[in-house]
Design a protein around this nucleic acid. Structure first.
Lengths: 122, 122
DNA sequence: CCAAAACATGAACAGTTGCTCATACGATAC
DNA sequence: GTATCGTATGAGCAACTGTTCATGTTTTGG
Protein backbone atom coordinates (compact mmCIF):
# COMPACT_ATOMS: atom_id res chain seq x y z
CA UNK A 1 0.00 0.00 0.00
CA UNK A 2 2.89 2.34 0.74
CA UNK A 3 5.56 3.04 -1.79
CA UNK A 4 8.31 4.94 -0.02
CA UNK A 5 11.77 3.52 -0.25
CA UNK A 6 13.10 6.10 2.19
CA UNK A 7 12.78 4.53 5.62
CA UNK A 8 11.21 5.96 8.71
CA UNK A 9 13.27 7.24 11.58
CA UNK A 10 14.96 4.30 13.12
CA UNK A 11 14.69 5.96 16.49
CA UNK A 12 11.33 7.62 16.13
CA UNK A 13 11.27 11.17 17.48
CA UNK A 14 8.46 10.50 19.86
CA UNK A 15 5.75 9.74 17.32
CA UNK A 16 5.31 6.00 17.28
CA UNK A 17 2.20 5.86 15.09
CA UNK A 18 1.41 9.51 14.55
CA UNK A 19 3.03 9.21 11.16
CA UNK A 20 0.51 6.62 10.08
CA UNK A 21 -2.38 8.65 11.44
CA UNK A 22 -1.23 11.73 9.56
CA UNK A 23 -0.72 9.75 6.39
CA UNK A 24 -4.31 8.54 6.49
CA UNK A 25 -5.66 12.00 7.27
CA UNK A 26 -3.98 13.64 4.28
CA UNK A 27 -6.30 15.08 1.62
CA UNK A 28 -6.45 13.51 -1.82
CA UNK A 29 -3.55 14.20 -4.13
CA UNK A 30 -5.77 15.83 -6.72
CA UNK A 31 -7.15 18.31 -4.25
CA UNK A 32 -3.71 19.25 -3.01
CA UNK A 33 -2.59 19.65 -6.59
CA UNK A 34 -5.50 22.01 -7.24
CA UNK A 35 -4.81 23.97 -4.08
CA UNK A 36 -1.17 24.39 -4.99
CA UNK A 37 -2.21 25.53 -8.45
CA UNK A 38 -4.56 28.12 -6.99
CA UNK A 39 -1.85 29.58 -4.77
CA UNK A 40 0.64 29.46 -7.60
CA UNK A 41 -1.61 31.63 -9.74
CA UNK A 42 -2.05 34.04 -6.83
CA UNK A 43 1.70 34.05 -6.24
CA UNK A 44 2.79 36.63 -8.77
CA UNK A 45 3.35 40.34 -8.28
CA UNK A 46 1.55 41.43 -11.41
CA UNK A 47 -1.44 39.19 -10.79
CA UNK A 48 -1.71 40.33 -7.18
CA UNK A 49 -1.79 43.92 -8.37
CA UNK A 50 -4.46 43.10 -10.93
CA UNK A 51 -6.58 41.47 -8.26
CA UNK A 52 -6.11 44.39 -5.89
CA UNK A 53 -7.36 46.70 -8.62
CA UNK A 54 -10.33 44.49 -9.50
CA UNK A 55 -11.10 44.22 -5.80
CA UNK A 56 -12.05 47.91 -5.98
CA UNK A 57 -13.91 47.98 -9.27
CA UNK A 58 -14.75 46.18 -12.45
CA UNK A 59 -12.19 47.35 -15.00
CA UNK A 60 -11.30 46.92 -18.64
CA UNK A 61 -7.89 45.87 -19.91
CA UNK A 62 -6.70 49.34 -20.79
CA UNK A 63 -7.72 50.57 -17.34
CA UNK A 64 -5.49 47.92 -15.82
CA UNK A 65 -2.76 48.76 -18.31
CA UNK A 66 -2.88 52.33 -17.09
CA UNK A 67 -3.14 51.55 -13.38
CA UNK A 68 -0.26 49.10 -13.38
CA UNK A 69 1.81 51.05 -15.87
CA UNK A 70 2.51 47.93 -17.90
CA UNK A 71 2.36 46.60 -21.42
CA UNK A 72 -1.13 45.70 -22.64
CA UNK A 73 0.11 42.34 -23.83
CA UNK A 74 1.54 41.47 -20.43
CA UNK A 75 -1.76 42.34 -18.78
CA UNK A 76 -3.77 40.28 -21.23
CA UNK A 77 -1.50 37.29 -20.73
CA UNK A 78 -1.94 37.46 -16.96
CA UNK A 79 -5.69 37.96 -17.26
CA UNK A 80 -5.81 34.79 -19.29
CA UNK A 81 -4.03 32.93 -16.50
CA UNK A 82 -6.44 34.35 -13.93
CA UNK A 83 -9.43 33.49 -16.07
CA UNK A 84 -8.28 29.93 -16.68
CA UNK A 85 -7.94 29.56 -12.92
CA UNK A 86 -11.47 30.89 -12.48
CA UNK A 87 -10.25 33.73 -10.32
CA UNK A 88 -11.61 36.52 -12.50
CA UNK A 89 -14.51 36.66 -14.93
CA UNK A 90 -15.01 38.82 -18.00
CA UNK A 91 -17.84 40.27 -20.04
CA UNK A 92 -17.81 42.21 -23.27
CA UNK A 93 -19.09 45.73 -23.54
CA UNK A 94 -18.64 47.16 -27.01
CA UNK A 95 -14.98 47.11 -27.89
CA UNK A 96 -13.96 46.65 -24.29
CA UNK A 97 -13.79 43.60 -22.06
CA UNK A 98 -14.62 44.24 -18.43
CA UNK A 99 -12.97 42.08 -15.79
CA UNK A 100 -14.03 41.46 -12.21
CA UNK A 101 -13.28 39.04 -9.38
CA UNK A 102 -15.09 35.77 -9.96
CA UNK A 103 -15.23 34.39 -6.45
CA UNK A 104 -15.65 35.86 -3.00
CA UNK A 105 -13.10 33.39 -1.66
CA UNK A 106 -10.42 35.21 -3.56
CA UNK A 107 -11.05 38.49 -1.79
CA UNK A 108 -10.90 36.67 1.51
CA UNK A 109 -7.63 34.96 0.64
CA UNK A 110 -6.14 38.33 -0.22
CA UNK A 111 -7.43 39.86 2.98
CA UNK A 112 -6.03 37.13 5.22
CA UNK A 113 -2.81 37.09 3.28
CA UNK A 114 -2.38 40.80 3.91
CA UNK A 115 -2.99 40.25 7.61
CA UNK A 116 -0.23 37.69 7.71
CA UNK A 117 2.16 39.88 5.78
CA UNK A 118 1.53 42.95 7.90
CA UNK A 119 1.96 41.08 11.18
CA UNK A 120 5.21 39.61 9.92
CA UNK A 121 6.58 43.14 9.61
CA UNK A 122 6.19 43.96 13.29
CA UNK B 1 4.18 61.29 -10.50
CA UNK B 2 2.96 58.54 -12.84
CA UNK B 3 5.28 56.85 -15.25
CA UNK B 4 3.12 54.89 -17.67
CA UNK B 5 3.81 55.47 -21.32
CA UNK B 6 0.85 53.34 -22.31
CA UNK B 7 -2.14 55.63 -22.67
CA UNK B 8 -5.55 55.29 -21.14
CA UNK B 9 -8.57 54.24 -23.14
CA UNK B 10 -9.32 57.02 -25.55
CA UNK B 11 -12.98 56.22 -25.29
CA UNK B 12 -13.18 55.31 -21.64
CA UNK B 13 -15.26 52.18 -20.99
CA UNK B 14 -17.66 53.88 -18.70
CA UNK B 15 -15.23 54.73 -15.92
CA UNK B 16 -14.39 58.39 -16.22
CA UNK B 17 -12.35 58.74 -13.05
CA UNK B 18 -12.68 55.32 -11.46
CA UNK B 19 -9.23 54.54 -12.76
CA UNK B 20 -7.73 57.34 -10.75
CA UNK B 21 -9.67 56.35 -7.66
CA UNK B 22 -8.50 52.78 -7.92
CA UNK B 23 -4.94 53.87 -8.50
CA UNK B 24 -4.95 55.84 -5.28
CA UNK B 25 -6.60 53.02 -3.33
CA UNK B 26 -3.99 50.44 -4.32
CA UNK B 27 -1.85 49.04 -1.50
CA UNK B 28 1.83 49.85 -1.31
CA UNK B 29 4.08 48.04 -3.75
CA UNK B 30 6.10 46.45 -0.99
CA UNK B 31 3.04 44.92 0.61
CA UNK B 32 1.82 43.52 -2.68
CA UNK B 33 5.27 42.12 -3.29
CA UNK B 34 5.18 40.40 0.09
CA UNK B 35 1.69 39.06 -0.52
CA UNK B 36 2.70 37.63 -3.88
CA UNK B 37 5.74 36.07 -2.25
CA UNK B 38 3.58 34.44 0.41
CA UNK B 39 1.25 32.90 -2.16
CA UNK B 40 4.17 31.85 -4.30
CA UNK B 41 5.62 29.85 -1.42
CA UNK B 42 2.23 28.25 -0.82
CA UNK B 43 1.86 27.53 -4.52
CA UNK B 44 3.81 24.30 -4.78
CA UNK B 45 2.54 20.76 -4.57
CA UNK B 46 5.24 19.48 -2.26
CA UNK B 47 4.97 22.42 0.10
CA UNK B 48 1.19 22.14 0.22
CA UNK B 49 1.54 18.50 1.19
CA UNK B 50 4.07 19.36 3.87
CA UNK B 51 1.71 21.96 5.32
CA UNK B 52 -1.22 19.56 5.24
CA UNK B 53 0.86 17.10 7.22
CA UNK B 54 2.06 19.68 9.73
CA UNK B 55 -1.52 20.88 10.04
CA UNK B 56 -2.23 17.54 11.77
CA UNK B 57 0.85 17.24 13.94
CA UNK B 58 4.31 18.49 14.69
CA UNK B 59 6.67 16.26 12.72
CA UNK B 60 10.36 15.70 12.14
CA UNK B 61 12.01 15.67 8.73
CA UNK B 62 12.15 11.92 8.40
CA UNK B 63 8.47 11.69 9.31
CA UNK B 64 7.70 14.02 6.41
CA UNK B 65 10.08 12.09 4.19
CA UNK B 66 8.10 8.97 4.97
CA UNK B 67 4.65 10.53 4.66
CA UNK B 68 5.35 12.20 1.33
CA UNK B 69 7.46 9.36 -0.02
CA UNK B 70 10.18 11.74 -1.15
CA UNK B 71 13.90 12.33 -0.93
CA UNK B 72 15.10 13.72 2.41
CA UNK B 73 17.05 16.40 0.61
CA UNK B 74 14.02 17.61 -1.31
CA UNK B 75 12.04 17.87 1.91
CA UNK B 76 14.78 19.78 3.67
CA UNK B 77 15.08 22.22 0.81
CA UNK B 78 11.35 22.91 0.86
CA UNK B 79 11.31 23.23 4.64
CA UNK B 80 13.98 25.88 4.31
CA UNK B 81 11.77 27.81 1.90
CA UNK B 82 8.83 27.51 4.27
CA UNK B 83 10.94 28.58 7.23
CA UNK B 84 12.38 31.59 5.42
CA UNK B 85 8.82 32.64 4.62
CA UNK B 86 7.91 32.26 8.30
CA UNK B 87 5.25 29.71 7.48
CA UNK B 88 6.68 26.93 9.61
CA UNK B 89 8.87 26.97 12.69
CA UNK B 90 11.34 24.40 13.97
CA UNK B 91 12.85 23.25 17.24
CA UNK B 92 15.58 20.74 17.93
CA UNK B 93 15.00 17.61 19.96
CA UNK B 94 18.07 15.44 20.18
CA UNK B 95 19.14 14.47 16.67
CA UNK B 96 15.78 15.42 15.23
CA UNK B 97 14.30 18.74 14.20
CA UNK B 98 10.57 19.08 14.78
CA UNK B 99 8.58 21.29 12.44
CA UNK B 100 5.17 22.86 12.98
CA UNK B 101 3.00 25.57 11.46
CA UNK B 102 4.16 28.98 12.59
CA UNK B 103 1.06 31.04 12.03
CA UNK B 104 -2.65 30.43 12.39
CA UNK B 105 -3.29 32.49 9.25
CA UNK B 106 -1.69 29.75 7.20
CA UNK B 107 -4.19 27.14 8.33
CA UNK B 108 -7.00 29.54 7.45
CA UNK B 109 -5.57 30.24 4.00
CA UNK B 110 -5.40 26.51 3.34
CA UNK B 111 -8.94 26.02 4.57
CA UNK B 112 -10.42 28.77 2.40
CA UNK B 113 -8.33 27.66 -0.53
CA UNK B 114 -9.76 24.17 -0.24
CA UNK B 115 -13.26 25.60 -0.17
CA UNK B 116 -12.61 27.45 -3.41
CA UNK B 117 -11.09 24.40 -5.05
CA UNK B 118 -13.91 22.07 -4.03
CA UNK B 119 -16.62 24.43 -5.20
CA UNK B 120 -14.88 24.82 -8.51
CA UNK B 121 -15.29 21.09 -9.08
CA UNK B 122 -19.06 21.17 -8.97
C1' DC C 1 38.28 8.91 19.78
C1' DC C 2 35.10 6.80 15.68
C1' DA C 3 30.65 5.38 13.41
C1' DA C 4 26.11 6.19 12.29
C1' DA C 5 21.77 8.70 12.24
C1' DA C 6 19.18 13.06 11.24
C1' DC C 7 19.34 17.03 8.94
C1' DA C 8 21.26 21.00 6.01
C1' DT C 9 23.30 22.85 1.93
C1' DG C 10 25.71 23.87 -2.57
C1' DA C 11 25.99 22.75 -7.48
C1' DA C 12 23.85 21.33 -11.61
C1' DC C 13 20.26 20.31 -14.68
C1' DA C 14 15.51 20.07 -16.60
C1' DG C 15 11.27 22.21 -16.58
C1' DT C 16 8.51 26.28 -16.00
C1' DT C 17 7.32 31.19 -16.03
C1' DG C 18 6.63 36.15 -17.27
C1' DC C 19 7.69 39.66 -20.33
C1' DT C 20 8.39 41.62 -25.12
C1' DC C 21 7.56 41.72 -29.89
C1' DA C 22 4.81 41.00 -33.65
C1' DT C 23 0.53 39.94 -35.32
C1' DA C 24 -4.31 38.58 -35.50
C1' DC C 25 -9.12 39.09 -34.07
C1' DG C 26 -13.52 41.62 -33.16
C1' DA C 27 -16.30 45.72 -32.79
C1' DT C 28 -17.19 50.49 -33.86
C1' DA C 29 -17.02 54.72 -36.80
C1' DC C 30 -16.71 56.69 -41.07
C1' DG D 1 -15.94 48.54 -47.66
C1' DT D 2 -11.55 50.73 -44.69
C1' DA D 3 -9.41 52.59 -40.56
C1' DT D 4 -8.89 52.42 -35.85
C1' DC D 5 -9.34 51.13 -31.13
C1' DG D 6 -9.36 47.44 -27.63
C1' DT D 7 -7.99 42.97 -26.83
C1' DA D 8 -6.02 38.20 -27.56
C1' DT D 9 -2.35 35.13 -28.72
C1' DG D 10 1.87 32.69 -30.46
C1' DA D 11 6.92 32.65 -30.53
C1' DG D 12 11.17 33.56 -28.33
C1' DC D 13 14.16 34.55 -24.61
C1' DA D 14 15.93 35.48 -19.98
C1' DA D 15 15.08 34.43 -15.32
C1' DC D 16 13.50 31.48 -11.94
C1' DT D 17 12.18 26.87 -9.60
C1' DG D 18 12.29 22.05 -7.82
C1' DT D 19 14.62 17.86 -7.76
C1' DT D 20 18.79 14.97 -7.46
C1' DC D 21 23.50 14.10 -6.18
C1' DA D 22 27.23 14.72 -3.31
C1' DT D 23 28.93 16.45 0.77
C1' DG D 24 29.01 18.85 5.32
C1' DT D 25 27.34 19.50 10.16
C1' DT D 26 25.53 18.09 14.57
C1' DT D 27 24.11 14.79 17.86
C1' DT D 28 23.96 10.14 19.97
C1' DG D 29 26.13 5.67 21.12
C1' DG D 30 29.98 2.84 21.96
Amino acid sequence: MSGNDEGLCQQPCDHPDVVDTVRKAMPEEGQQQDLAQLFKVLGDHTRVRILNALYRSELCVCDLTSILGMNQSAISHQLRVLRDAKIVRSRKQGKNVLYSLDDCHIAELIRIGFEHVQEGKG
